[in-house]
Design a protein around this nucleic acid. Structure first.
Lengths: 142, 142
DNA sequence: GGATATTAGTTGTTTTTGTAACTAACAAGG
DNA sequence: CCTTGTTAGTTACAAAAACAACTAATATCC
């Protein structure tokens, strides 16, 4: 057990290689079609999936730093993909909501994501897929 | 199948979350002890594992861009963790070799990596571990 | 109700990447 | 040899990320 440790099997290394490879390919979609950065796609995807929410909520769910979210929100607003509305009860909070155009972009990218996911999962059987997702979800909680 | 696609199960997203979480924690080791950046640790780890090799070789194996490797090599040289030696046959190539100090750092970090790997793999059984590594290795090839 | 602390979000500054252009060494065809 | 092409690696500049300091709104405690 001690002697069989191969540094090339080091999990953070493997995870990083796999994540880079997967992200690189998918990035072409949102980059070329909508000129989005990764954080923008991430924010769009959270708003599309969970519905209207605040920047703080996105930070918590996406595990992104507030400055990254702030800048992504500004960029998405400039692209007219979302609108802000301050809450009456507490004007520090702003609810972020996708516009029609933002929703269309989300629907398009979500469909593309589904195709892409199916393509990269193709080499694996159902048991492997379940195990893979389960392990990744667990690791993400660290 | 169509209707059950959950965007939060999107593999690039899960991979990225898991990779970030894993990298973040391990990074404390090489950052605080040796002031290394991630690319530097990656280069050190390749030299420690495969022995003397050229920058080009590291690029190929680590799937890193040559500019990143070039800068990491300079940084590791400044820390006196490696030495360069141009090849007589072709002076464009430089063989990179760890110094004693570089080897010590590698040994230390490799041991730490092994402990860390065991810790994050602890929640999984052997079958899951094998599946996880196998899938990640496959995905990294994309 | 007014000083103090918190919270949501932004802006500014420094590091780190990514991209592209460059240098130096070699190879090959004429 | 001497142009043209290729390869290994570096450097310069632009894009993006990380980190810290800031503003504005609200909550709290006396």
């Amino acid at each position: 057990m001690h002697d069989t440790f191969e540094i090339t099997d080091f999990l953070p290394y493997l995870l990083n290689q796999a994540a880079d490879a997967a992200a690189l390919e998918f990035q072409d979609y949102y980059k070329s079609r909508y000129g989005m950065l990764r954080t923008e796609w991430r924010v769009l995807f959270h708003l599309g999936h969970y519905g209207t929410m605040t920047a703080k909520g996105i930070c918590a769910r996406a595990r992104l730093h507030k400055t990254k979210v702030s800048r992504a929100v500004t960029a998405l607003e400039t692209k007219r993909f979302l609108t802000r509305s301050a809450l009456l009860q507490d004007r520090r909070h702003e609810n972020l909501t996708l516009t029609k155009a933002g929703r269309r972009a989300f629907d398009d990218l979500a469909a593309e994501a589904q195709r892409f996911d199916a393509a990269i999962m193709a080499p694996f059987d159902n048991t492997e897929r379940d195990t893979l997702r389960k392990c990744l979800r667990q690791l993400a909680k660290l």
